[in-house]
Each structure stands twice: as C-alpha cells, then as structure tokens.
Design a protein around this nucleic acid. Structure first.
Lengths: 132, 132, 132, 132
DNA sequence: GTGGTCTAGACCACA
DNA sequence: GTGGTCTAGACCACG
C-alpha cells in the first residue's frame, strides 16, 4: 500500500489521502480490522502535517470506513464499509450527472463511458496484488 | 432552460452554474451558436454576484464551451464542445477512480453502477425538450 | 446570547461551546435561519483560537444543527434540528443509565430525579427571554 | 455480575469500568461490604491493563464508593455510597442541562424524557437479580 | 470578510 | 506511543 499524493493538485491533500485509503479498501489491500499507520507515522512518512492526516482519518471514521481507538490506533472498520443507501445513491447521481453531461458534450458515447467505468471496476477488483 | 442553484451546497456557485450550462448543452437545450444572457442579466436574474457569473463564463470559454465577443456577447461555441481527447480521458479516469472505489466499498455492484450511468445518459439524451 | 465558558473545566472548550449553542437553540434565543458570529469574530470575542470555534461549528453542522456557507457564514439550520431518532434515543439511554445508577447509589429518589429533569425542562422552555 | 466493556467506544475503559461497578451497586448486585476482585484478577479476567483497573478503583475510592485495604483488598463501602449533597446536585444539573437542551431541540417532549428516566430507574431497581 | 486548508508545535489523557 | 485538544499564524477560494 503506497500512498501517492499530488501536492500540486487542486484537490486538498486530506481528500487525496481519503481517496487513497478508500481505493486500498476497494482493492482489498486494506482488510477489515487491519491497522493503519499512526497519524504521526503516516504524516512523517508522507511528509505532511499530522493534522492533515488526522483530518482524513477523522472524516473516514465519521463516514464509517475507520475505527479510531485512543490508544490502539486506527483500523479499517471490521464490519466493512457502510452500504450504498438511498442517500448515497442520490448523492452519487448528483455528482455523476454533470460529469456525464460534459462527456456527452465532448462526443463521448454511452458505450465508451460504460467501458471506462467497467475497466476501472475491473482494475480495482483484480488489482488486489499490484501496488497502485 | 432554468438555472437551478443550491445555495446550501458545498459546491461553489460558479461551479454549479457551469454544470447547469453544460447540462443544457448536453440536453441540446442550448444549441451551438445560441446566445446566452449577458453577465449582468444572468447575475441579476439569478440573484448572484456579477463576478460569479463572469467566472463561470470565463472558465467555460477557457475550456472551449463558449465564445465571448466584445459586442455580440456570449454564445455557445458554434463548432460544438471540444472533443474528449487523451488529456480529458485521463482526467476523467482520475476523477472516477476514487468514486468507483467508494461505491465498491459500499457493495455497489458493477452492474448497478453501469445501470446508473446508463440511466443518466438516457435522461440527458431524451430530456432535450423538458426543462430540468 | 452570552457564551459562558469554564476554561478550568475538564470538558473541552469546543464541547462547552457546542452545549451553549444547543442551549441557545433550545431556549429559542437562537432561531432557525439566524446567523451566528463568524469563527474569527466569536473566537476573538471569547478569547480562544478560531480553530476551536471552527471545530464546534463543524461538528454542529455535521450533527445537523447548523448550516455553513463559505461566504455567508454560519446559520442555525432553517429546518430546525434533526429529530430524536432511534439511534439518538439509544445513545441517550446509554448515557443516562450510568448517571441514574450513580444517583440511585446516592439515595436520590426517582421522584427527586424526575423533578430535577422537569425543572430543567421548564427553565429552558420559559427562559427564552433571559440571558443564561 | 458481568463486566461488559465496549472497546470501540469513545468512553475510556476506566470510565466504563467505573460505570459498570456503580450500576452493580445500584442494582444491589454488589452489596455494601462485598469484596471485589483484586486489581490483577479483574484486569486479567477482562483482558485489560492493570493500570486501567487501578485507576477505576482509585477514583471510586476517592468518590466514596469503595474502600481499599492493604490486606483485605477492595470492598464496596460498608456505609453505602455518599449521599447526593448540594455539590453533587449542582454537578448533575450542569451535566443534565445540555443533554436535555439537545433533546428539546430534537423535539423530544418533557413527557417522553420523564418516561425514559423512569424506565431506567425501574430497570435498575427491579433488575437486581438479572445480569445486565 | 467569510470559511477552507495546511503547517508547526505544545500539552494532556489513555493504556 | 497513541490520539485529543488548543494555540498561532499563513495563504487560498469564494463572492
């Protein structure tokens, strides 16, 4: 599990970090109950501030992906991630709609888009052993 | 073409405005060469700041969706939107990957995801006459 | 609406601040849609760090008591606070049980406890005009 | 008397342990003069750190719930728990006020709250024989 | 002027 | 050694 961040990106570092962890869970490189590095360790490892790591961890905890124990550190939620409820589906729809609209404007066919989504699904599903 | 903004949203107003215009183009409610309201008119119409509308227009011009003439005002680019080049595809992949990873974590199947994408494609393609 | 904090307390400042705001809402001194001071204004007013105020605001937003707009500042949630759902009731039960157990150990009768609860309810309900 | 701890909880272990003992006393499962397991025995029994058990015992001794003799070990205070003096009542009021305020915000009626308190009182009073 | 992000460094509670 | 809290100060995005 390598964390690869783009410090030039417009996307906040803590968001990128959240994304990397979620991708790790999806790829099953991070398994339920598995321990993550401490905020300090990961921060110094990546070369960012511990508060930035902490913010990512806290939000992932809030969203149900992580458990945080005062002393035992941070672990992937043993029960697995929260399910895709109605609220999530609605949010996903809202996010996806303008993205797909732009692709349509750019003459990207529905078939192409579906292929792209499928390829990402496959990459994540079968990428369990590879690193990024 | 109604512009529907959510002032409670975490998404900046100018982004929402860009999205609405792009959705309008995708739905073919806004056709190549068609004129958009002036910055002033749209701003006062929606009840937002001039600078916000201007920012949206400028960025859409920068991205090739709009043309801005000094005298003739703002028009949808007559040649249509720029195509989905390699750079765009790569950016789209980067954006989609963490989104799909989260859906996988939440036990959303590939089939469900593809169905969602397809439904949005259909909604945008066949919704050309309706207003939002 | 006066914010009264105890800097010697074991209770974190941001928790006390959250409590004060919730009490203000309960007393209807803070009404739905009403604007709260900016993080900087309140922080300098109370004499604490803006991040501490921000933490209180963020958590109250997360819990549904506040709305935070990037530019328009912080307001009491116009739709009122979230309702007492099952999850909340369960959490309340868990919190209350050891508290009541201790009172029982200390020979506080059920009647006394009920009177205390009732008096607090009345204080908050009829205290709309008083300040703290 | 089973000690049931939630290691996922945000509440410190030693607090939970204190709570469990106090609940045991309230339920009269633990009687005045009754002996508690030694620090070592309880710690190894529950599978937690010695210091954690010790901290709970020390604080309960400090608060007057326990007596700790060098040789005779730890016993429930023979004279019963300290009474609900003015200081305790005041502290209880301070703790209860923000909790009740939140319930009011969440549209929980005074009657519902009183019923909840009453049900917990009854559960503790009549649950003397049952285990949790 | 507003909140959002990030850094830096301190002290404390917990186990 | 772990996360939790608080302070301090900087720069940015938004409108």
């Amino acid at each position: 599990m390598f964390i690869q961040l783009d410090f030039e990106s417009e996307i906040p570092i803590y968001e990128q970090l959240k994304d990397e962890i979620i991708i790790g869970i999806a790829k099953q490189q991070l398994l339920p109950g598995e321990r993550l590095p401490s905020v300090r360790a990961l921060a110094s490892d990546i070369g960012i501030n511990l508060h930035t790591v902490n913010k990512a961890y806290q939000q992932l905890k809030q969203e149900g992906f992580l458990l945080i124990h005062r002393q035992r550190g941070v672990v992937i939620h043993p029960d697995g991630a929260p399910k895709a409820d109605e609220h999530y589906q609605k949010k996903l729809h809202t996010t996806l709609r303008p993205m797909i609209a732009e692709s349509m404007c750019r003459d990207m066919s529905k078939a192409d888009y579906l292929l792209l989504v499928e390829s990402i699904y496959n990459e994540l599903q079968h990428g369990g052993d590879s690193n990024e």
